[in-house]
Design a protein around this nucleic acid. Sequence first.
DNA 1: TTAATATCCTACCAAATTAGTAGGGGATTT
DNA 2: AAATCCCCTACTAATTTGGTAGGATATTAA
Lengths: 138, 138
Amino acid sequence: MLSRKTRYAFRALTCLAENYGKGPVLISHISEEKKIPLKFLENILNELKKADMLESKKGKGGGYMLKVSPKKINLAKVIRIINGPIALLPCVSLNFYEKCADCDEKHCGLRKMMTITRDATLKILEKKTLHDILFAGA
Amino acid sequence: MLSRKTRYAFRALTCLAENYGKGPVLISHISEEKKIPLKFLENILNELKKADMLESKKGKGGGYMLKVSPKKINLAKVIRIINGPIALLPCVSLNFYEKCADCDEKHCGLRKMMTITRDATLKILEKKTLHDILFAGA
DNA sequence: TTAATATCCTACCAAATTAGTAGGGGATTT
DNA sequence: AAATCCCCTACTAATTTGGTAGGATATTAA
């Protein structure tokens, strides 16, 4: 399951996607509109910025905005930044790989099943974008 | 990600699948062969039993065994018993559904994406079985 | 019928993760 | 210079995870 933090991230990003091209959006605005604790939201947006998904402006008239079009931000990317691995096992993860103890990967049946599962999941999550969230919700 | 407990469960079930039809297998045997802490494994096997996946025999010559053929135990079932929901959001879960606060499900775009993702994942996890784990690992 | 064998059950505990809070620092605009 | 707004470090509470401890209960065999 996605953490609550990740769900917050998606809600905030949806808000930023709605305002794409219209200049910066205040953290406080997002916080109120999407009912996300202000300080917690600060952390989240900052992480997304460090991961190069957002840009920010300080001072009056400042705020956050998407760095690229909502059509270019897929769900897998967001999940990986805030939530972590998408695969069900570390030894199957493309971005967070970790070897598992006492297991010969070449002959591990579970690993093979989880690889297939990961591919099926990624096929969706890498194709669907913030734009799709907006559009599907309309 | 699957919890360590769930990975233990799969390893134990693999062992039981290998011995399907050969009578009960001792917890201590599984514990040693698969390197799973004995007492923790007791809990796991007991949960699987309560979920009607295993049967047990007490006393000398006792132990655990699969209640049905490895071909009839799919991975989704195991994950749900030990790990919990397979969906990425509670409001999308078939077996652990929970309504999310402040969200009109009919018009929630994220929910729609996560429903599609869940279906893609389940299509694999409900088709693949313990037998597939054994066979793929061979 | 008693001793040995195994699962079953309740309760506890430590470490890690998650979900925040607090408080001020630094940049930018008016 | 003052107001605005993001940035950063550190702390904390609650929950989940990954176990342990110790005995109760059921079964078998001598």
